[in-house]
Nucleic acid binder design. Structure first.
Lengths: 339, 339
DNA sequence: ATGAAAGCGCTAACAT
DNA sequence: ATGTTAGCGCTTTCAT
């Protein structure tokens, strides 16, 4: 690494081209007012000195950073990967880059990121973090562009893009009922998250509609969405006297863990247990049996969230969006698979 | 979102505290020269006006952004998630944030990111992208801090953190041989990638050492590391007259896809096929059978890469690092599983 | 110990 | 059409 190599600034170009910094700036910002002749001279100088305008200078002047903050709880859930890809694709088309922020459910990290928005290091924020402090975020949203993606605040003021979790859960459970199950368990995450409450509501609505009892012992709450938690949840269910015949897990990662616990359970007496997940991550086609699930349009959610944020950053108003979900029936809920 | 709300600047604080901007700056930078009394006054004003120093201003002045660029080919491979977590954890401790850059193997994106480094939007770069243009990167590295993580240039000048891919592959294949396999196939990615060449070299070395033939038709090259590619690779092998009895796949994602193809192959005549992967992503314990693999210390690789880069950004020299890998034996290579 | 002032690289209002 | 210049918010040197 060469030390002391100074990078060309706009002034160097101006001098080299025999013009002023304003002209150089105009050339770079595609200002049509510049003569073709002048433009050529400037562009030659730019080539010559291999000039790149400093974002630092430009950003300070325009007080824009062209950066979007993206808050996620953890990178380990593949659910977020597809969304991020959507955000990135939409952002890059409009010369925005994303600053990925993994909060790991740590409030001190959250603070760092909220401050980055306050002190202009980023122009706006997309939050996918269910653990975020809503009071602080709402306060921030009064003065800065913020969009929710996936997890949001019901009846809140921050625009969001999400799906109808209650309806999707209802459909998943109804599918279990229609395929002959009467004892249906729920592996849910903690009820402090909106999506957890909504999916539980959908689960309960489906059971009620078909006059099936809601049994406390068939509802498991896990600490996180890891495979391990799903497996533990299933183990608890398998220990029950009165075992369920089907399980609805609120994420594919939980469902996959649950199916693994089923694999490893060598009680040949027990009846097969159907499993349905939520998200449709790509892994869900790789399990054996393949996993029935609710598809979320993750890539589109990301694109939408980014576009909403970019509008917001231009000062436009935006409306929240509910995207379509879809029931995907695979082997894990096919009775035949187990016969 | 309130419009027109102006954020407090360092001058506002100076005025409020009845001091100068220099003093406020000193307080913020923990300059010990400030009197306790003055410091208190300033801190009160900071509280009062809820002041956050603008990174934009600070960055321009110090010509540092406290941002590290992280280049990855795609977010969809979970292999990168753990590494990124390591980078982020190490970075945040030192007040660095990461700018995640998915190149998607598109050269135009690559250019965007390389330029961000040139024009000071980021202080340094960690590249995990095997598709990157080495000429450009080497040129950039002459003037800017760059570190390779996982994929690197052999005998190049850019420091890297990686594992011994050749040795790891050798061990994986030797394990297949020791468990009784004589016909061993390789599902590799494209040979333009260093890791692909090294792993193939290890594969060939193990075969040679045990006097097993290297058969062209048992070596598959895939376009990417997706599940689908792994499945297609296995299908090709299953169509062969002379089928292998074991497969070494250069990534867990490929291996998992390959195992899925095995699941779906209903030829009851064929002998079982052992599979070993590479990476030890968390999903590899969720398949049935569970996947034998080579563990890479992904989190530690990330931490190391970030620390190396931070040293480099301070102007220190750093040495490349090879971290330990580990053979993980699970069900997919246990002969008993198939009997 | 504190303050005044220069200046980082750029854009844009204003002047020519 | 082009140039001059102020100033974005901060750090830091130099003076007091």
């Amino acid at each position: 690494m060469k030390v002391g190599v100074t990078v060309a600034t706009i002034r160097d170009i101006a001098k080299e081209a025999g013009g002023s910094v304003a002209t150089v700036s105009r050339v770079f910002n595609d200002n049509q007012i510049v003569t073709e002749k002048t433009r050529e001279k400037v562009e030659l100088a730019i080539q010559e000195l291999n000039y790149q305008p400093s974002m630092l200078g430009r950003n300070l002047r325009t007080s824009k950073s062209q950066l979007m903050l993206v808050l996620i709880p953890s990178t380990s859930n593949p659910f977020y990967s597809e969304i991020i890809k959507g955000i990135q694709d939409a952002g890059i088309t409009n010369h925005y880059n994303i600053l990925l922020c993994e909060t790991d459910a740590k409030p001190e990290r959250e603070n760092i990121y909220l401050n980055m928005l306050k002190n202009k290091l980023a122009d706006g924020m997309i939050s996918m973090d269910p653990t975020i402090n809503l009071n602080k975020l709402n306060e921030l949203a009064e003065t800065h562009p913020v969009i929710f993606c996936s997890e949001y605040e019901q009846d809140g003021v921050i625009p969001y893009v999400s799906i109808d979790s209650e309806m999707a859960a209802y459909e998943a459970v109804k599918h279990l009922i229609m395929t002959g199950n009467k004892k249906i368990a729920l592996i849910n995450s903690e009820k402090k998250y909106l999506y957890a409450r909504l999916r539980q509501a959908g689960y309960e609505r489906a059971l009620k509609e078909f006059n099936l009892p809601i049994q406390e012992e068939w509802i498991i709450h896990t600490e996180d969405l890891g495979f391990e938690s799903g497996a533990q949840g299933m183990c608890k269910l398998l220990e029950l006297e009165d075992k369920p015949t089907a399980v609805f897990a609120v994420s594919d990662t939980l469902a996959i863990g649950a199916m693994k616990a089923l694999d490893m359970d060598h009680d040949q007496e027990r009846s097969p247990i159907a499993v349905i997940g939520f998200d449709n991550i790509s892994f869900s086609t790789m399990t054996n049996p393949t996993l029935s699930t609710i598809e979320q349009p993750m890539y589109r959610m990301g694109v939408n969230a980014a576009e909403m944020l970019m509008k917001r950053m231009k000062g436009e108003e935006v409306e929240s969006v509910i995207l379509d979900h879809k029931l995907i029936i695979r082997e894990s809920t096919l009775p035949s698979k187990y016969i």
